[in-house]
Computed example of a mutant assay.
Amino acid sequence: MKLKISESHVARWREDLHKAGRREIGGVLFGEQIAEGEFRLIEATRQRFGGGGAVRFHRRGRPAKKQIEALHAAHGHRPERFNYLGEWHSHPNAPAIPSARDEATMHQLLADQAGAVNFLVLVIVRLSKESVLELSAATYLASGHRLPCRIVIDALSADPPSFDSSEHEL
Score class of each variant (00 low, 15 high):
3 L>F: 06
72 H>R: 11
102 D>H: 02
14 R>S: 15
42 I>H: 05
147 L>Q: 13
43 E>H: 11
95 P>K: 15
27 G>H: 05
102 D>N: 02
70 A>E: 06
95 P>N: 13
121 V>E: 02
19 K>Y: 01
33 Q>G: 10
148 P>G: 06
77 H>I: 02
105 T>K: 10
23 R>F: 07
101 R>D: 12
100 A>E: 15
156 L>D: 15
95 P>G: 11
23 R>C: 08
124 I>Y: 04
62 R>A: 11
4 K>G: 01
103 E>W: 13
69 E>D: 05
56 R>K: 15
157 S>G: 01
55 V>P: 00
71 L>D: 03
74 A>R: 09
53 G>Q: 04
81 R>Y: 00
106 M>E: 14
86 G>Q: 14
139 T>F: 00
140 Y>V: 04
109 L>N: 10
45 T>H: 07
125 V>A: 12
163 F>G: 06
11 A>M: 07
65 K>T: 06
126 R>C: 09
170 L>S: 15
170 L>R: 13
59 R>M: 08
5 I>F: 09
26 G>A: 03
117 V>C: 11
14 R>K: 15
28 V>M: 01
97 I>L: 14
95 P>E: 15
88 W>T: 12
13 W>P: 07
19 K>V: 03
63 P>R: 02
65 K>G: 05
28 V>E: 01
119 F>N: 08
26 G>H: 01
113 Q>Y: 08
87 E>Y: 08
137 A>H: 10
32 E>V: 09
42 I>Y: 05
26 G>N: 03
7 E>L: 11
156 L>K: 15
42 I>G: 00
111 A>L: 07
69 E>R: 04
102 D>I: 04
76 G>C: 12
69 E>G: 00
43 E>P: 00
160 P>H: 08
17 L>S: 05
81 R>G: 00
122 L>I: 04
77 H>E: 13
95 P>L: 14
29 L>R: 05
6 S>M: 05
61 G>C: 03
47 Q>G: 09
119 F>M: 10
31 G>K: 01
16 D>K: 09
87 E>F: 11
94 A>N: 12
154 D>I: 08
39 F>T: 07
45 T>R: 07
32 E>Q: 15
81 R>H: 04
140 Y>E: 03
36 E>A: 15
101 R>H: 08
106 M>Y: 07
144 G>S: 12
7 E>A: 14
94 A>S: 15
